[in-house]
Design a protein around this nucleic acid. Structure first.
Lengths: 341, 341
DNA sequence: CGTTAGCACTCTCCACCATCGAGTGCTAAC
DNA sequence: GTTAGCACTCGATGGTGGAGAGTGCTAACG
């Protein structure tokens, strides 16, 4: 019974056409006749795991069927050793900098699974300020460059609307104050340490103003749901026969372009801490009901967390996808670990 | 004759169906009968400006027809004042930092022209080093942060494979040397200024090694064809009826994903210095023959140059697209100018 | 009672065909 | 040069009729 469901799904995943009872007994050594299979298929359909496009067609899995199947995969197919080596090799070739990794992860996932690869950079929960520098552009404005301990770099312009231009020595003094007070702080701790600056001293006052700007930038960074979702291999998804009618395709793309839902999903994956599968119309709010996602977090829990995964048609090879995503997220874990070591 | 061509194109642009002689006389006050129009249409077809999908269908413009039409647009329709104001307002709302502008430009172009908006950040021809800082991550590695005068920020890790760990004072000394020698330099000038560093002094030797890394990063930045092409509103293009068959769509997307051709185009536009239109199969090498591009450079000639524009079906409103792209690129010019002022 | 062979039934797919109509090209007259 | 008239072409539409795949049901079997 479960093995029949499994057979139906695996057959449908490869052929993309409704699968009949005969095809099953022929291609999978089930040891029973097609009539028996038919009665089991009818039962599976009654349980809501399979459907009928029409009376005289074979069965196709429902989203619930896929869900059942995915839950039953206790050990996902691990990625073949050859491919593991290849991927490691590729990661070895890019520069050792976290900003390159997540893109490569998406590209790799896309090419291995033949679906679309998704990845976000590792984003800290509460970023720590490592250091900040300012470069005066002119007397009225300063360009702030903020380095976060988690590796991100932020830039902001601050207008110094003082009555008279500020000279470079004063700016240096401001910078010194800020570095002394803000280094290593999170946004909220930085805020409290700025409070004690005096209002009657011109330099301290300026430092406070600039410092508040710094805090604001860091807060915004903390609050941003996802910095960026990088995707590669969307073409693979477009090529699937179920997207031959372009309206389905459109739905998926509009959901991708409006990244709100993706962000929410990714947030929940990052929170859950393990690989997760979202199938078809389980993706409720937006128009993603024609696709499934396999997502896994990577990074350091409590520090920086990103997400990698694949997006494919509901009819995708979940076991392969899970195996591949698991490997890539593991690899990313290693890399991030190295960075912090 | 030219007015008939113009009428055919404008009608086809709005209806997306082949246009016949009767429809033309009805909807455009041409003052002649359909038979006359037919003979003119036949002539235009002989000149290669129009085609026939089949015998009993109306005419549709060829790429050459569009080209002729575009050349004849001496004064593009300027963007309505209301929309100009709206756009200015939107640009006023984002932070005053060049990295936000090009994304907004793409988004704006997409929503106004109902096609896809494209934009690249302004990229300098020969970047100048403004300043660089290093933050030691541990004793064996330093994280380089490189600020270019043109506003870009680059990051790189350098492994300091010295025999013994390097202490912070030495690192500071290295940084001081580098800032003194490299500030304001282009990559090639920086290279020559590094040559005079002595090999027998440990700090100078280290400075040379790190400095060479800096030069390499800047060179890579100079050499990179395009940093990034940001696109928005690809959905608009997907919705055009000519992309109902998804294979055409696929061609366009594969051309976009493989950004080589786009980069080449953008390079040529940046070089040409004015708005350019690429129609259908004029986009020779790659599979972009189903779409047209209207691209314009922005920035400061000789300093930083970026490109903004739209990508739409060949059947797009060129006059509106040209007007809009012209306005947006002009606006970007103003903004960049402000930044340098 | 589970399994199986047999069989009628259902429904899609495809090829074929006739019809319709938009739009053309041509010709002859103005 | 322009126009009316007309035959012609060819895609689009819709209906028909097998062919084939696959089902569900029933009755028989171990």
């Amino acid at each position: 019974m479960q093995s029949i469901l499994r057979a139906v799904i695996e057959e449908y995943v490869t052929t993309a056409t409704p699968v009949g009872s005969q095809a099953l007994v022929e291609r999978y050594g089930l040891g029973v006749s097609s009539a028996t299979v038919r009665s089991i298929l009818a039962e599976l359909e009654a349980n809501g795991l399979l459907t009928h496009p029409h009376t005289s067609a074979g069965r196709i899995p429902t989203d619930a069927g896929y869900r059942f199947y995915v839950e039953s995969i206790t050990e996902a197919i691990p990625l073949p050793a050859v491919e593991q080596l290849m991927i490691r090799h590729q990661f070895g070739q890019v520069e050792f900098a976290s900003e390159h990794w997540f893109r490569l992860a998406a590209t790799t996932l896309a090419s291995v699974t033949r679906a679309a690869g998704l990845a976000t950079p590792a984003k800290p929960r509460d970023a720590h300020i490592r250091r900040n520098d300012r470069v005066a552009i002119n007397e009225r404005m300063a360009s702030l460059i903020l380095v976060l301990r988690e590796g991100a770099i932020k830039q902001a312009l601050v207008t110094l609307d003082a009555d008279e231009p500020i000279d470079q020595p004063s700016l240096n003094a401001v910078a010194a104050i800020l570095n002394e007070r803000l280094a290593g702080m999170t946004a909220s701790r930085a805020q409290t340490r700025l409070a004690s600056l005096r209002d009657d001293d011109r330099v301290e006052q300026l430092a406070r103003r600039v410092g508040e700007r710094v805090v604001k930038v860091v807060r915004e960074y903390d609050a941003a749901a996802i910095e960026e979702v990088f995707s590669d291999g969307l073409l693979n998804v477009m090529e699937a026969p179920e997207f031959a009618q372009s309206d389905k395709l459109r739905r998926v793309f509009s959901a991708l372009e409006n990244r709100a839902y993706l962000g929410q999903l990714i947030g929940s994956v990052a929170g859950a801490g393990q690989i997760q599968v979202f199938i078809g119309h389980e993706n409720q709010p937006f128009d993603m009901r024609d696709v499934s996602l396999v997502l896994a977090p990577y990074g350091r829990p409590g520090h920086a967390i990103g997400v990698v995964g694949v997006l494919g048609p509901t009819r995708m090879s979940y076991s392969q996808a899970i195996g591949t995503v698991r490997f890539v997220s593991g690899l990313m874990n290693e890399l991030v670990e190295h960075l912090y070591a």
